[in-house]
Nucleic acid binder design. Structure first.
Length: 678
DNA sequence: CTACCGGAACTTTTT
DNA sequence: GTTCCGGTAG
């Protein structure tokens, strides 16, 4: 870990600046976190109470890291500072001030897949009522997920539906009227259910700031606001920041326009370009890279040199040199997987632990073949990004049950949970949900009217009602005890419903342990949706924490991280840039920055892999294949700074390199045995 | 009305 | 692999 004992003059200037608002333009690896940490410590040492400092970071993890490091420098006084994502902070402020908006403080928060589910529910309702009953063959409609994406894009970029459809979803254009009606109904449903989605959190915060009394309160609450990764904020977030800073707190923003990779979430690097003028801010630029060797920097500088419109800076490094970045052309995907394993093991043998190495991918499934190879060789790894833990069915089942306890008007939660009852499908669930929500006390209503509403399932329904009522009774206690109570009902249901139920129940065990440390059910639920565990939903979860493991991560999730050895795979056109992103020039530029972010994660060694042949069928018996081109961003100028190699089939890693698994072996046997009993 | 099966179409990145 | 649709049996 880099931790400069002495700050560079530029860093020192950024840390101690006290003339007003400040923008720190910090290139990749220039000690951005160290600088921000030092500034935080400096402010507290200078007498600013920690709780009057607000840190807006890209993930809660980043906030925690910042705090932990500042505590090392400045001691306990630092803890107590506010920190988290825009969404998490919005949640926290809204819990306190929601009444001003006519919103119940026990609102629940929906994640993106909940949002898609509710849209689907609403759409079906409209269908039933509107009566397109022409009976004609239903044309294929947008998937619910697509519906959610369209809506989110409209909201986040403040673009009209027609425009978004035209530009990004032309095949849905003839559904425009139906989509519009669905969106309108969706908003109404969220309001009456007391539920907010991600966009609502930001919009509601902005609305709070339009109420003069509340606005004054919020603005006077803080003396300093520090914003990390400013290049990835969207226009709404910039507005929020401006409103918050009116007549009060000073803003320090940190970012690098060359690393802006979230435009699909409406982030715009115009925010960072316009910051100095809009906030009347001083600019400090950090150009000295402390992370990478000069040869690696030469390659990454060449990648970003091809970009248009950027804040001019030239990164340099005073580190001793090692080796050139390596460009490795592989035969095909499985060759690529073998090559990665071989180099990972090589570095491990020469003293670089797996923990200090990472494989970076453009999309989550790019590592599929590699994961097979890693498993075959017993190389432990943890994957970040991609399919998430919270998206798995059994986890949603638990969370939705808890959401009813927290907010009995949560329609989507009811709709899902009722279907867990034997013999209840979508139609019954929808009808019953409507009836329950019409009652003042939905849970009591379920207990009373179960026989009438749910013939054939009345006993399980009464059991569910009793569970919910009792859970509500203890919901003032720790979240852990509520989870415990709910699982008495839920566990048997899940066991009957899912095949690999043992592993699924273990997931719930993990969640329950997490709940134990939460002060309330509301905290627990909000925490999970706003700061979900970032590893993917591999039911086994991460290996034992003290074990050494390799990291596989999407490039997006790797932002802000660094490793001694980095492997970037699938550096071919169609993958980086992604085929889906080659439509307009702006998006292609973003893909270039994505490759730049990936390559700049490396401290000492960087490998870029390009499989030249892709099989049409991944597991193909036949030999159907196509040829890939090297990523267009790896131009001659870039490759000049790299060592170019072709993998020769003769040097496959010997199978003897398989590593023994010391303690895990008996556990693995147990697992296999246990799986037989399912 | 539900449960289940088969065919067809799709498949980024994340708060 | 997943998701969505339509058909069929109970």
């Amino acid at each position: 870990m880099f931790d400069p004992v002495v700050l560079t003059p530029e860093q020192l200037r950024a840390v101690t600046y006290d003339g007003g608002n400040l923008l720190i333009v910090a290139g990749a690896g220039t000690g951005k976190t160290a600088t921000l940490t030092a500034r935080l410590a400096h402010l507290v040492a200078g007498g600013v109470p920690a709780e009057r400092i607000l840190m807006l970071t890209f993930s809660r993890r980043a906030a925690r890291e910042l705090l932990a490091r500042a505590e090392q420098a400045a001691g306990e006084a630092v803890s107590g500072a506010w920190g988290g994502t825009f969404h998490a902070v919005a949640n926290r402020l809204l819990r306190r001030h929601s009444r001003a908006l006519g919103l119940s403080p026990s609102f629940t928060v929906m994640d993106q897949s909940d949002s898609a589910d509710l849209l689907d529910l609403v759409r079906k309702d409209l269908e039933g009522a509107g009566g397109d009953g022409s009976g004609g063959p239903q044309r294929r409609r947008a998937r619910k997920r697509t519906l959610a994406d369209i809506r989110s894009r409209c909201v986040n970029t403040s673009t009209t539906l027609s425009e978004v459809l035209r530009a990004h979803y032309p095949w849905c254009a003839d559904e425009r009227a139906e989509i519009k009606a669905t969106f309108e109904a969706y908003t109404g449903r969220k309001r009456s259910n007391g539920v907010l989605d991600y966009d609502d959190l930001l919009l509601s915060w902005a609305t709070l700031l339009r109420l003069p009394d509340v606005a004054t309160l919020l603005q006077r609450q803080f003396d300093h606001i520090l914003v990390d990764e400013y290049q990835d904020t969207n226009p709404l977030q910039a507005d929020l920041l401006e409103s918050m800073s009116q007549g009060g707190p000073l803003v320090t923003a940190v970012g690098d326009d060359a690393q802006s990779i979230y435009s699909f979430r409406a982030a715009t690097h115009r925010n960072i370009m316009e910051f100095p003028a809009r906030f009347g801010a001083e600019v400090v630029t950090l150009e000295r890279n402390h992370r990478s060797t000069p040869s690696l920097l030469a390659a990454t500088n060449a990648v970003i040199a091809g970009a248009k419109h950027r804040h001019p800076k030239q990164l340099w490094s005073a580190r001793r040199d090692r080796e050139l970045a390596v460009l490795l052309k592989c035969d095909d995907e499985s060759d690529q997987a073998r090559q990665v394993c071989r180099r990972v093991l090589h570095h491990q043998e020469s003293g670089t632990a797996l923990m200090s190495q990472a494989v970076l991918v453009r999309t989550a499934h790019h590592s599929d073949v590699l994961e097979l190879e890693l498993a075959a060789r017993n190389i432990p790894y943890v994957k970040f990004g991609g399919l998430r833990f919270l998206e798995t069915a059994h986890v949603k089942d638990l969370l939705c049950t808890l959401r009813i306890v927290e907010n009995p008007s949560d329609e989507l939660a009811w709709f899902r949970i009722l279907q867990l009852l034997e013999g209840v499908g979508p139609a019954t669930a929808r009808q019953v949900t409507a009836r329950l929500l019409a009652a003042p006390q939905p849970i009591d209503a379920l207990a009373c009217s179960a026989p009438e509403l749910l013939q054939g399932a009345e006993e399980p329904a009464v059991e569910l009602a009793r569970t919910l009522a009792e859970a509500v009774g203890i919901s003032g206690h720790s979240a852990g005890s509520v989870v415990q109570r709910v699982r008495i009902w839920l566990d048997p249901v899940l066991t009957a419903r899912y095949r690999k139920s043992r592993a699924r129940l273990e997931d719930l065990d993990r969640l329950q342990r997490g709940a134990d440390s939460q002060p309330s059910l509301g905290h627990f639920l909000a925490d999970l949706t706003l700061d979900p565990p970032s590893f993917s939903s591999d039911l086994a979860g991460p290996p034992h924490l003290d074990d050494d493991y390799l990291t596989i991560s999407t490039i997006h999730s790797a932002k802000g991280c660094e490793w001694d050895v980095v492997h970037v795979i699938h550096a071919t056109d169609g993958n980086i840039p992604s085929d889906l992103a080659t439509g307009d020039p702006e998006t292609v530029e973003e893909e270039r920055r994505l490759l730049y972010v990936a390559m700049t994660r490396a401290r000492n060694h960087l490998y870029v892999y390009a499989p030249l042949r892709y099989y049409v069928r991944p597991t193909g018996r036949d030999d159907a294949h196509g040829y890939a081109r090297l990523s267009r961003f790896l131009t001659a100028q870039v490759v000049d700074h790299m060592e170019e190699t072709t993998s020769s089939p003769a040097v496959h890693a010997p199978a003897a390199q398989q590593r023994p698994t010391p303690k895990a072996s008996m556990a693995a046997v147990d697992d296999m045995l246990a799986a037989l009993w399912d």
